[in-house]
Simulated scan of single mutants.
Amino acid sequence: MTQQIIIATGAIFGMLSVILGAFGAHALKKILSSDQLHSFEVGVKYQMYHAIALLALGFNSSHISSATYWCFTLGILLFSFSIYGLVISDAKGKKLRFLGPITPIGGLLLVIGWLQLLINAL
């Protein structure tokens, strides 16, 4: 994975995290319950944490394998974006239940990405 791709991916996820966070805080605040808003915010936070990790690793690309990159990238997509879909669809009364099992798969990919970093550091 090239340094530019890693940094660009981190920057895109970071930018989307800010946009989605603002969307949740302003537009969705009126239609979501406090539990739904909390879940949405968890998705935004995890997305931003991993965007920052990708940026840091991109600027020091000797510590990131392509497997780590893909675990973080797919983990963000599956974890955070499934939460967004679940929360918004639930608020509209048509919960997309098929997304429920996708969230923990995304979380597992994020954990595996961190484990790979640990292994690479040792």
Results as ranks from 00 to 15, higher is better:
28 L>E: 10
10 G>T: 01
4 Q>S: 15
9 T>W: 03
57 L>V: 02
87 V>F: 02
121 A>T: 15
56 A>M: 14
101 P>Q: 12
48 M>I: 10
55 L>C: 12
68 T>D: 07
34 S>F: 11
30 K>T: 10
66 S>K: 12
5 I>E: 10
60 N>C: 11
25 A>D: 07
13 F>W: 09
105 I>V: 15
80 S>V: 01
31 I>L: 11
110 L>M: 14
29 K>I: 02
54 L>K: 04
47 Q>P: 12
102 I>K: 05
83 I>M: 09
114 W>G: 06
72 F>G: 01
119 I>P: 01
77 L>T: 09
86 L>I: 13
26 H>D: 06
98 F>A: 13
91 A>T: 04
27 A>M: 06
10 G>S: 09
95 K>N: 01
94 K>Q: 13
28 L>A: 13
53 A>W: 01
38 H>L: 06
36 Q>P: 06
93 G>I: 05
68 T>M: 14
18 V>K: 03
55 L>V: 08
36 Q>W: 01
93 G>Y: 06
116 Q>M: 14
22 A>H: 10
2 T>S: 13
102 I>L: 08
71 C>E: 03
50 H>D: 00
55 L>Q: 06
58 G>A: 07
42 V>C: 04
41 E>N: 15
33 S>H: 09
77 L>I: 12
20 L>K: 04
23 F>A: 08
80 S>P: 11
102 I>R: 02
89 S>K: 01
84 Y>H: 02
50 H>F: 10
18 V>I: 15
85 G>T: 10
70 W>A: 08
118 L>H: 06
59 F>N: 12
46 Y>W: 13
43 G>D: 09
120 N>D: 14
104 P>F: 07
2 T>W: 00
19 I>D: 01
3 Q>A: 10
21 G>F: 07
21 G>A: 07
66 S>V: 14
39 S>H: 13
24 G>E: 01
51 A>H: 08
116 Q>H: 10
79 F>N: 03
52 I>Q: 07
57 L>D: 02
15 M>A: 14
16 L>D: 01
75 G>K: 03
11 A>T: 13
49 Y>F: 15
42 V>F: 02
21 G>Q: 05
17 S>D: 00
10 G>A: 04
39 S>T: 12
16 L>P: 07
113 G>D: 11
48 M>N: 08
43 G>I: 06
69 Y>W: 09
5 I>Y: 08
62 S>Q: 15
114 W>T: 05
80 S>I: 00
92 K>F: 11
53 A>R: 02
97 R>Q: 04
111 V>M: 14
13 F>R: 02
78 L>A: 12
54 L>R: 05
122 L>A: 08
117 L>Y: 04
46 Y>I: 04
46 Y>P: 05
93 G>P: 02
21 G>S: 11
2 T>K: 12
77 L>F: 11
55 L>N: 05
